[in-house]
Nucleic acid binder design. Structure first.
Length: 686
DNA sequence: GCGATCAGTT
DNA sequence: CACAACTGATCGC
């Protein structure tokens, strides 16, 4: 639960995810995602009054978050005051003090956070340095390395501070099975049940919160059955989700809710009230998504646990595990890291102690071996930085580690272009900090071969998790699939499978051995298939022997372990979640994009948004021509693989053109700052 | 009556 | 053992 108070030290004029108290004075608001604990004060009378008085104050968020927020009548009053910003589109915002007229320029870039639909991280760049507010996030290991806008010239940007989701920032949450492992486990449990008869149904006991949608869509896709939910109007403009949901109770997969749902379930009644179909009673199991976690040395990671005759828990996490957090932070390597979450039972100091060693001042000049994990990064001397001027306390002369995870020909990203188009209304300083590539970093970007070695024994657990049947048979399918997926603005582009296995290895579940109506699933990573019936005490022992942690064990029958299930390592490159497709479900291919909107009017580099009410900057969409609306449906063409062991090509990367190289070399030679940004259509609103 | 806060539940 | 919401009690405007 976020305890972030809304303001960042570097940019106190903006407020993020908090809208009460001090935040009532903010010049601009940002919402990372639509969960209640990040919306405190967002519909309070005090803020409502502020909006009425301060007409230049806007709320910025992803298009999906805007859509979800405005679906609720309670937040409808925001309608004219929300500006949605496309993912990975640097956008300039003027922060104007309405009393004094004082103005501050800031550039924000939204990065996909993988937490729930529409969830993003905010990367701010301005006179006080580059800061990253992560909101809540779930990113697999290595994903930071694949985020283009965290980089510049082939290395990680110089980040002053990170405001970090520390929900599971404790070694006891060392590992949480990947999204793909969890999904596969659930898929197979569901399959083993609903294939028995049309009267076998599952109830997904999900909380009332966004974040389960990718589960629903994958289940729906897999079985050709829509998932029954109470409400779906919030997805009315997101066909990739909507198509997998229904309010028709006549389906075998339910995610409906009711205050007395648990009680209903005891009586074989679904939350929506039905108990039978065609007068034939239904057989129901419940699956409760819950976070399960495992220690550093835990090998077995069971993603499904039977908790009763017809009840299961399935591993599911909205947040990154400890190892994912530390991987992320050590990769970013900011000067400061501030925890956004202080879980109960711990303190700010304790969390800060964990974060500190991963920050810059703790890094030494020399490459060093880490006790765990692999060395993916090169380190070299940091030569200068525009952005490290402000705080004496943090004016750390120590070197900045370099991050070379992308192959070197991609370090000069062909998609980045000089930010000339905005230079006229862009303060020099800002342009520098935003654009990012500077002479010194160019030097390092040309640095040829980066270190990418792996410690021999660490993370071998991951290998061990690969089922024997999969080993030595890496399916080449995945890359093709990804390619294909990337062409179309499909829903699963945002939460997609990305490893090289398929579900095929999971299809042979033993079916019922009789007696219990519940599915009998195989356990045991050694391959000795064990049929588990409920309340098997030896299995409970088995759990403690494994040193597993992370679930309560009213009755702990292990059902599926990730070793077996290693099928899809699903990545949450949700690119800000799902992109809503407004009004029509029109595909926007790359070609269409170019035809419809060949060149951005504002800038091909940074979108300029203003809160001073200039009509051109952004906004409510009513002036935006249909073509542009189409573009908001634009594909996430850069979905990518997320294997923990390979760093795939940067999305949309091409070999640099000679002219670009020439430009860079010239700048390098003259010592001028080189400011690069990705060419991108500016579509700020829907 | 509404909202904020807290404790308890799921 | 967590999360994110919900419920109900209490207090204050």
């Amino acid at each position: 639960m976020s305890s972030f108070q809304g303001q960042m030290a570097e940019y106190p004029n903006i407020s993020i995810d908090r809208f009460d108290r001090e935040n009532l004075r903010a010049r601009a608001y940002f919402l990372s995602h639509c969960h209640k604990d990040h919306m405190k004060g967002l519909r309070a009378p005090a803020l409502k009054r502020r909006l009425e008085c301060s007409l230049k104050v806007y709320l910025y968020c992803s298009p999906v978050t805007k859509e979800l927020l405005l679906t609720s009548p309670k937040y409808r009053f925001w309608e004219k005051r929300i500006i949605s910003i496309e993912i990975e589109t640097p956008t300039q915002i003027s922060l104007v003090d309405e009393a004094s007229g004082e103005k501050e320029e800031i550039v924000v870039t939204l990065l996909p956070a993988g937490h729930c639909p529409g969830s993003v991280m905010f990367l701010f760049q301005g006179d006080n340095g580059t800061v990253l507010y992560t909101g809540d996030f779930r990113l697999a290991k290595g994903e930071a390395a694949r985020m283009e806008f965290l980089h510049c010239g082939g290395r990680v940007k110089d980040i002053q501070s990170v405001y970090l989701d520390t929900t599971f920032c404790d070694p006891k949450f060392y590992q949480i099975p990947s999204r793909g492992e969890c999904l596969s486990g659930i898929l197979e449990l569901v399959r083993s049940w609903i294939t028995r008869s049309p009267y076998h149904v599952v109830w997904l006991n999900c909380k009332a919160a966004y974040g389960y949608e990718y589960l629903f869509t994958h289940l729906s896709e897999e079985f050709g059955l829509q998932v029954h939910v109470d409400k779906l109007d919030m997805f009315r403009n997101m066909p990739d989700i909507l198509n997998h949901l229904t309010t028709d109770r006549n389906t075998q997969i339910h995610a409906c809710r009711h205050p007395k749902a648990e009680e209903y379930f005891q009586w074989n009644k679904l939350p929506c009230g039905i108990t039978s179909k065609n007068r034939i009673p239904l057989h129901t199991i419940s699956i409760k998504p819950s976070t399960m976690w495992f220690g550093e040395r835990t090998r077995k990671t069971n993603v499904i646990v039977r908790t009763g005759e017809s009840s299961y828990r399935a591993c599911f996490s909205f947040h990154s595990s400890y190892s994912e957090i530390t991987d992320f932070l050590s990769y970013i390597c900011p000067v400061n890291a501030h925890p956004n979450v202080i879980p109960v039972g711990t303190t700010v100091d304790k969390v800060t102690e964990i974060l500190k060693p991963l920050c810059r001042s703790s890094q030494s000049t020399e490459p060093k071996y880490k006790p765990l994990g692999k060395l993916k990064r090169a380190r070299t001397t940091h030569l200068d930085s525009e952005e490290e001027e402000e705080d004496d306390l943090f004016d750390d002369p120590l070197p900045v580690p370099l991050r070379h995870k992308v192959p070197n020909q991609q370090t000069l990203h062909p998609k980045v272009f000089p930010m000339t188009a905005v230079s006229q209304n862009q303060p020099e300083k800002l342009g520098q900090s935003t654009g990012c590539i500077k002479a010194e970093s160019m030097k390092t970007s040309l640095w040829a071969n980066f270190i990418d070695c792996e410690e021999s024994n660490s993370e071998s657990e991951e290998e061990l998790q690969i089922p024997a049947s999969f080993q030595g048979d890496p399916s080449p399918l995945t890359h093709h699939q990804q390619k294909a997926d990337a062409e179309v603005p499909q829903w699963d582009v945002f939460f997609k499978r990305n490893d090289n296995t398929t579900d095929d290895g999971l299809e042979n579940f033993p079916s019922s051995t009789g007696g219990s109506q519940s599915p009998q699933l195989s356990s045991d990573s050694d391959g000795e298939s064990t049929h588990i019936s409920s309340q098997n005490s030896s299995q409970s022992t088995h759990i403690s022997e494994q040193g597993s942690q992370g679930w309560d064990s009213q009755s702990d029958t292990i059902l599926l372990s990730s070793q077996e299930r290693n099928s899809g390592d699903m990545t949450s490159l949700n690119k800000g979640g799902y992109r809503p497709k407004i009004k029509e479900n029109l595909p926007a291919s790359q070609t269409e994009k170019n035809i419809l909107f060949p060149k951005n009017t504002y800038s091909e580099d940074v979108n300029v948004v203003s809160n001073v009410g200039e009509p051109t900057t952004v906004n409510s969409g009513k002036h935006i021509p249909q073509e542009r609306k189409l573009l908001t449906l634009s594909t996430n063409a850069d979905s990518q693989s997320s294997s923990d062991f390979e760093i795939p090509a940067t999305p949309e990367a091409e070999l640099p053109q000679q002219e670009h190289l020439q430009y860079l070399y010239e700048k390098l030679a003259t010592g001028n700052d080189i400011v690069l940004e990705k060419r991108k259509s500016s579509l700020l609103d829907i």
